[in-house]
Computed example of a mutant assay.
Amino acid sequence: MTQLPKISVSVKAAIVHNGEILLLSYDDSDDGGDFHYNLPGGKAVEGESLRDAVVRKVLQETGLNVRTVRELFVVEYVPGQYGFDLGPQHKTQHNFLAEITDGNTEPRMSDPIDPMQVGFEWVPLADLPGKHLLPKVNQPLLDSLANPRDILVDRW
Score class of each variant (00 low, 15 high):
74 V>T: 11
54 V>F: 08
47 G>N: 07
45 V>G: 02
36 H>E: 06
35 F>P: 01
65 N>T: 09
77 Y>G: 04
56 R>F: 10
78 V>N: 11
80 G>F: 10
69 V>H: 05
38 N>T: 13
64 L>C: 02
53 A>L: 07
32 G>E: 00
39 L>A: 04
52 D>W: 01
80 G>Y: 09
37 Y>H: 09
44 A>V: 02
76 E>C: 05
71 E>I: 04
62 T>C: 15
68 T>M: 06
70 R>E: 02
43 K>N: 15
80 G>Q: 13
69 V>I: 14
45 V>Q: 12
38 N>A: 12
58 V>E: 03
75 V>L: 09
59 L>F: 13
57 K>H: 11
70 R>Y: 06
50 L>G: 02
62 T>R: 03
37 Y>G: 00
31 D>F: 15
38 N>Q: 13
46 E>W: 05
67 R>H: 06
61 E>S: 09
50 L>Q: 02
32 G>N: 06
78 V>I: 15
36 H>A: 01
49 S>Q: 02
54 V>W: 15
72 L>P: 07
71 E>V: 03
37 Y>V: 00
32 G>V: 01
41 G>P: 00
46 E>C: 04
45 V>L: 11
42 G>L: 12
55 V>N: 11
52 D>L: 12
66 V>E: 01
58 V>S: 07
45 V>A: 08
73 F>K: 04
71 E>N: 14
34 D>W: 08
65 N>R: 11
61 E>W: 11
62 T>F: 05
41 G>W: 13
33 G>T: 01
52 D>S: 12
36 H>T: 03
42 G>A: 08
55 V>R: 08
49 S>N: 03
54 V>Y: 05
63 G>A: 03
76 E>L: 05
68 T>R: 05
31 D>H: 15
65 N>V: 06
66 V>M: 00
51 R>N: 09
64 L>F: 06
60 Q>F: 15
37 Y>Q: 01
39 L>P: 08
73 F>C: 04
32 G>T: 03
61 E>V: 13
33 G>F: 05
43 K>M: 14
70 R>T: 00
76 E>A: 14
51 R>F: 03
63 G>T: 04
59 L>E: 08
35 F>E: 10
46 E>K: 09
54 V>P: 06
45 V>N: 07
57 K>Y: 11
42 G>W: 04
79 P>G: 10
45 V>K: 13
67 R>S: 09
36 H>C: 00
43 K>I: 14
33 G>N: 03
58 V>C: 08
64 L>K: 02
54 V>Q: 07
35 F>S: 10
54 V>G: 02
61 E>N: 12
61 E>P: 08
68 T>K: 05
32 G>P: 09
51 R>A: 12
39 L>N: 03
31 D>R: 14
79 P>E: 11
37 Y>R: 00
55 V>Q: 14
55 V>P: 05
69 V>F: 03
76 E>N: 08
80 G>W: 09
40 P>T: 02
73 F>G: 00
42 G>V: 07
34 D>N: 10
41 G>L: 13
